[in-house]
Write a protein that binds this DNA or RNA. Sequence first.
DNA 1: ACATAAACATACCAATTAGTATGTCGCAAA
DNA 2: TTTGCGACATACTAATTGGTATGTTTATGT
Lengths: 195, 195
Amino acid sequence: MSKAQATRSDILTRAMELIYKQGFQSTSIDDILATTQVTKGAFYYHFKNKEEMGIALIEEAMHTEIWPGIQSSLSSSSNFRDNIYKMMDKLLFKHPFMTVEHGCPAVNLIQEMAPLNEAFRLALKKSLNKWERAIEAEIIRGQETGQLARSHDAKQIALHIITLYHGVRNMGKLLGKPYYVSFLSEFRQYLDSLN
Amino acid sequence: MSKAQATRSDILTRAMELIYKQGFQSTSIDDILATTQVTKGAFYYHFKNKEEMGIALIEEAMHTEIWPGIQSSLSSSSNFRDNIYKMMDKLLFKHPFMTVEHGCPAVNLIQEMAPLNEAFRLALKKSLNKWERAIEAEIIRGQETGQLARSHDAKQIALHIITLYHGVRNMGKLLGKPYYVSFLSEFRQYLDSLN
DNA sequence: ACATAAACATACCAATTAGTATGTCGCAAA
DNA sequence: TTTGCGACATACTAATTGGTATGTTTATGT
């Protein structure tokens, strides 16, 4: 990685941390610069403006931070229920920087920015779509291997699972980690109820 | 209502509209004043600072805006499933100022402010708790009238329903109104699956 | 070694922010 | 009628904001 690429990466990494905790609008560029070796000149060399940096954050940081954990869970065993459960468990409990109090950066950004900025909305939707199709594929795999009746709508279930994830990430901010635990057991029941 | 009370109410009403659409942190006091007849002196006469106004917003506006619709749905018929379904339908489709793109003000505030401000978190938790107990009571009513097995944990179901609401409000920002429709039909299925 | 552009660094700016200081005006009680 | 306070109104400030203008350094191909 060249020095310039490292600088760009530093900006995105630090921006991710701050935006995750404070939100996009409330994270100032000076905030990001203050805790990096990066100067304002460097920032505006790499990004046209704050918005473009936010889009880059979604497209790059999001895909490299969150996506790998999802992919490593899905298709890891032959039992599709176990895989989806493991994906949820990993997302909620095993992720290196996500905490219960601050939730999930993607969920937070959707909440904050989707109504305000169409470019954000589209980038976030694209990201969500990728996840949705991965879950959908896992469900279809379950149907093809006889674990789940073909009468189920795979896409609808996938969206339902993502909806649950969004919900629990938000509720966790009020109820704390214990709610994650009881949610997970209910989630297991939900998966088993699909027959 | 006295003139002073009307002024205070004007502030909270306009603040609610703006915070709902832009978030708490990104709504400035000048924003609120600009579209009201209220001046800065009046604002700071009624509220110590911006934070205290936010807390008042949660405790008052929230309870008077959202709560009535919930209460009128619950206990309206003898079928607890119909009542809970109606509550969800009313919240998603019938509310005077909530839109799909901006979601629900309570959900938004939890997302944004719960991790940043303990006073907000507690006020929001209290508000959520009220809702949770109302749903729980409806479920218990269902159990006592033989519509639902007593083996179910009413509180867990109530929290699950609220989690779903949070999730769908967030997902709606990406997927639009059609998702509300398909969610509602899935929600009906969920309620019927409780036996 | 040298030209040239990429990759920064510094200083600045106008607008916006939450909050304050200090005044004014009307009305109720004495 | 006067006094006093509730309910504002106006003008201001220091800090912060996103963004720009204009430099300087550093790498890189020739």
